[in-house]
Design a protein around this nucleic acid. Structure first.
Lengths: 374, 374
DNA sequence: CGCTTTTCTGAAAACGGTTACATCCTATCC
DNA sequence: GGATAGGATGTAACCGTTTTCAGAAAAGCG
């Protein structure tokens, strides 16, 4: 307390005056209510002249209490400024109405959108969300999951099906339901909701093949610990294989999730003597990198190089040339993940494997291959 | 509800078969360990042949317990697969080692980056983060704050100083410390960390003025409930005023945070008979919109139109022409907010108003005004 | 070797809710 | 009118930790 006051860094004269006042204020008010507001529910009960049980009932199950009592209690709650203590509630009821989510990183538009959608849905049904990140590290993911379970989450939303074995065991041991989002794997014994990345990637590659391209490069995201990236690569390769197109190993590059890395990969690809006439990319950000680098190097897209993305971020339709890509309804996917868990927790029937449709959006970045490829 | 079930898309026979098996499995394992793992700490205590108090001490304050006991307990914890129950811990210790954060939206690169940084820092010091969103709505922010306080957070990170009055009172009443991030207001009695948006905006506008522009437009973010946006506008206007430059009211437009809106605003601005030779923007996304629309309309940037952004997002240096903008160290800012609260909670000395430096990054989108403005 | 510190450990009372169970009413029905 | 069902409320035992306090053991000391 005291040292705090001293320590405040004070800038300007106005500031020199105000902070102490604030300090005082806070401390005073804190103490003031500390006395009255402690023992939360009992204070309310006393004020309303009822038992704590009634207050609890009035809050959690208003129907179960007479209208007059309900009103009296509501007024007492207001008067005391009562805020229920969630941890106590969780402890005694063994339910938290909270879900946990672990994403590789929040710093990726797709995940940010998904999380936003999930959170919005959850709050609409009275749930909260505990969000953590793993940085594509399975051990960290496990640790975060432990953390969340320890926190008492009722269920867990995970990205993909690429997890530490101990994670699944731990969740089973603690009877915490979970769902893998962003992938679709009907043959696995775990709930999931998402698009079939392999099929969608296949569609993307098929598109450029249909246009007549035979020299096709792949720039994918890092496949390590990323089943979504792997599935997409698998889809690309299957499409090529089915069309009897060979993929020189130097035409397949993997890059991290930044524009700079993508540009570097594109620079490499475009510098090859023997270069592809089309590039399919593991995600839109990578595609942007390819587009930018192609422009910088003086190659015309799509005349000399066709580019396909995957995700359909905002920029894709604004860019010039706009990007042909796979549209994935991220918001819907994540919301459905929430729905699954909420319904599951409510004891309702749920469907374990839910496929979300993708679609190929053809824009300006793809075209027939030029007559005379270098 | 029902229509949801109907709408579910089931593909393949595997899906039809597996779910029941899984259901069984989970339930079984759940019950199995439910018996052995319950009563967490007592199970550990019994197994190690010690009291619950010792186990608790071994976990929270390892030094306070003899080495042999510590080892025995560690082994028991491992054997039982014990995961501490955070709510119980919070209830009993009255500390959660958890901070709450309320941002307008997660779906904005700046906030996403900031949150990521804050979360990373917090987890490095053993704290967790509870993240919620307000959608720029003060009432929702208040409600979310209640929620977080109810959850037992030790402190709160808020965006800016534009809050519901009841919010400050509620936090004071409950003695929950907080900090306003993303702004710098040394004359206000509340802790804050961030850049001086007014000064930075002033710098941005001064830049185009120095280049010789006299016909300057402003495209800002919505100022309502957004002190950061307002401060920037104020800075722009002050710079103009100081240079005796008049700002026709039709040259100041406000837009929401999407590329489409920004483009629309730019379209409007460029369609005016009397149009500016430079546009200063409330953030980079808006600037992107102006850039894109200028290109579409055939105006050359920067020859015919100079554009200045604010934030320095990734795209700004990749775009062609690359964007002159104000660089703001978001990650650092949010991390410092976390540091402030953590140190404050630890009773350490803290600095109440912390200014984070901005810088003007001059790139290709600004230049001298052309000789013959229309 | 007895006495005082100090260190380590255990027993039990919180912490702030929920909820099973008991109790007390008040209609309802024969 | 008395028995009874059923709804509204109260009592008190938990939920799984932490933490105070006190006792036991070990260590230091003259």
């Amino acid at each position: 307390m005291d040292n705090l006051t001293k320590s405040r860094h004070i800038v300007g004269t106005a500031a020199t005056l105000k902070p102490p006042a604030y300090q005082c204020n806070v401390t005073f008010m804190g103490l003031l209510t500390a006395r009255s507001a402690k023992q939360g529910i009992r204070a309310v009960a006393k004020r309303a002249g009822v038992s704590t049980a009634s207050v609890s009932r009035a809050i959690n199950n208003p129907e179960s209490v007479s209208a007059s009592l309900r009103a009296r209690i509501a007024q007492a709650i207001e008067a005391v400024g009562y805020i229920p203590h969630a941890p106590a509630r969780i402890l005694s009821s063994r339910r938290s109405r909270t879900l946990g989510a672990i994403v590789p990183t929040i710093d990726n538009t797709m995940f940010a959108r998904g999380i936003a959608s999930l959170q919005k849905y959850l709050s609409s049904v009275g749930y909260m969300l505990f969000l953590t990140t793993s940085g594509y590290d399975l051990d960290i993911e496990l640790q975060q999951a432990r953390n969340l379970v320890s926190r008492g989450v009722d269920g867990l939303v995970l990205r993909g099906d690429c997890h530490h074995d101990a994670l699944r065991k731990m969740l089973a041991d603690n009877a915490v339901p979970f769902i893998n989002v962003g992938i679709y794997q009907p043959d696995r014994p775990y709930p999931c909701v998402g698009t079939d990345n392999e099929a969608a990637a296949h569609r993307a590659a098929a598109h450029v093949i249909e246009l007549g391209h035979r020299r096709i490069g792949i720039v994918s995201a890092l496949q390590r610990n990323n089943d979504r990236a792997s599935a997409r690569v698998a889809g690309f390769r299957r499409a090529l294989a089915e069309a009897d197109i060979e993929l020189p190993s130097k035409w397949h590059v993997e890059v991290p999730y930044t524009l700079d890395d993508a540009r570097e990969a594109a620079r490499y690809l475009l510098s090859l003597g023997e270069r592809p006439t089309a590039v399919v990319c593991g995600n839109d950000v990578i595609a942007y990198g390819v587009l930018l680098e192609a422009e910088r190097s003086g190659y015309s897209v799509p005349r000399e190089l066709s580019v396909v993305g995957f995700d359909d971020l905002d920029w894709s339709r604004h860019l010039r040339p706009s990007l042909t890509t796979i549209h994935v309804p991220t918001a819907e996917t994540w919301q459905r993940a929430g729905e699954y868990l909420v319904r599951h927790l409510a004891g309702e029937q749920t469907i374990m494997h839910h496929e979300v449709d993708y679609s190929l959006v053809v824009r300006e970045s793809t075209a027939l291959p030029s007559r005379s490829p270098k």
